[in-house]
């Protein structure tokens, strides 16, 4: 998870447990991004257009478009990861072990999904 790395680089302390919950993480504009990502994921485009239109008051259209670009890119690339049962790179696994436990991401591991859904 590169958010942790960017926090280290900018010397900001993000509460990464909030990635899977409603609690704030500490990233500027995160409330707008939360809604934008959710509506993009759900393909609720009418609601998303309304939200983008209204969000112009608080965030520039340029940033909103760039946020959509990131959201849609990751809506695609996660399909590749999920469809290939891709394991973590060894180095990533070692350096993010604590983070993955605290954020709850381990719940998405493939072996757990197989137990849960089959």
């Amino acid at each position: 998870m590169l958010l942790r790395r960017s926090g280290e680089a900018s010397e900001k302390d993000y509460d990464l447990a909030g990635m899977l919950t409603e609690s704030p993480v500490g990233v500027e504009g995160e409330a707008v991004f939360d809604r934008l990502v959710q509506l993009t994921y759900e393909e609720s485009y009418d609601a998303l257009h309304q939200f983008l239109f209204e969000s112009k008051q608080t965030m520039s259209p340029e940033k909103l478009v760039d946020a959509v670009a990131i959201a849609t890119a990751f809506n695609g690339i996660t399909k590749v990861a999920n469809a290939s049962g891709l394991p973590l790179d060894q180095a990533t696994e070692e350096t993010t072990k604590k983070l993955r436990m605290s954020s709850g991401i381990n719940e998405f591991a493939d072996d757990l999904k197989s137990d849960r859904y089959n």
Binding site: M1, L2, E28, Q38, A67, N82, P87, A109, K113
Partner: peptide, 29 residues
């Protein structure tokens, strides 16, 4: 991109959005 690219967002915002979308997709990776 993992390296600097053409965006008006800072890196923490980029990675926040990426992580949130990954979470919606229950992506372990």
């Amino acid at each position: 991109s993992l390296t600097p690219f053409d965006t008006s967002l800072d890196r923490s915002q980029v990675e926040y959005i990426a992580s949130k979308m990954s979470s919606h997709n229950q992506c372990f990776y």
